[in-house]
């Protein structure tokens, strides 16, 4: 009960937008596509990536790209050169991060990770991770090719995730029993609450007599 109330209090008291770090990034106006520079997608690429579900043309930080979504993957094609885009350099990512970051702190590290870390889903794809030196280990994640902001994390969010696991009693290492632990505890506390209200009722009634 104590753990439920502590975690519950944290989750309610800290605003969800702050947990999500919405204040960390500026909302940038979407860039207009400059149509005269756009080259078409070659048939070769279409064949290579088939079957294709959708193609999106968009501008991320002044870089026009085609995002080609197939069943297996998302491929980024440079819309100017028409070629599959190479990974962005650390310098470019750093520049983009500074452009979008709304906080005061400076960058502590820019690192290219071979796969998404667990806190952003653990996908087996490389990702750029930019950490800020703001005491909350605020972190921005960028797509390696398009430079799109994928996700952001702060220690407030990490604490929220941890307390959420405590709240739903998702204790690791207990395997498939986790749901059962929660049910046992919640039903026990239901009994406690019912006995408690019975006691309370008689106590209040008793004092008036």
């Amino acid at each position: 009960m104590l753990i439920w109330s502590i975690s519950g209090l944290y989750m309610t008291a800290v605003d969800l937008d702050i947990i999500h770090g919405d204040h960390l990034v500026k909302e940038l106006k979407p860039n207009i596509i400059e149509s005269d520079k756009i080259s078409p997608i070659s048939e070769q690429i279409i064949e290579q990536l088939a079957p294709i579900q959708s193609i999106k043309l968009k501008v991320y930080f002044e870089q026009s790209v085609y995002e080609i979504r197939s069943a297996k993957q998302l491929t980024i094609v440079d819309a100017i050169t028409g070629e599959i885009k190479a990974d962005l350099a650390a310098k470019v990512i750093e520049q983009q991060a500074n452009e979008i970051y709304a906080g005061e702190a400076s960058i502590a590290s820019v690192e290219r990770l071979p796969a998404y870390p667990g806190e952003v889903g653990g996908r087996k794809q490389p990702v750029w991770q930019v950490q800020y030196d703001d005491g909350l280990r605020s972190t921005l994640y960028f797509h390696v090719q398009s430079g799109r902001l994928i996700s952001k994390r702060t220690d407030l969010w990490r604490a929220f995730d941890f307390l959420w696991l405590l709240h739903i009693m998702e204790y690791q290492g207990v395997g498939g029993m986790t749901g059962i632990i929660f049910r046992v505890f919640s039903i026990t506390s239901m009994l406690m609450a019912l006995f408690g209200s019975w006691l309370l009722f008689y106590r209040l009634k008793g004092e008036h007599q």
């Binding site: 207009i32 596509i33 149509s35 756009i38 279409i46 579900q53 959708s54 193609i55 043309l57 968009k58």
Partner: peptide
């Protein structure tokens, strides 16, 4: 339904000439 697929990419640039303030253009099924 995943059977729908794009076989041929349309000419994005040509369409965009008519919409000079477009910020996003997708081809879907």
């Amino acid at each position: 339904n995943k059977t729908n697929q794009i076989i041929q990419a349309e000419n994005f640039a040509k369409l965009l000439k008519n919409y000079p303030t477009a910020t996003e253009l997708s081809q879907i099924t």
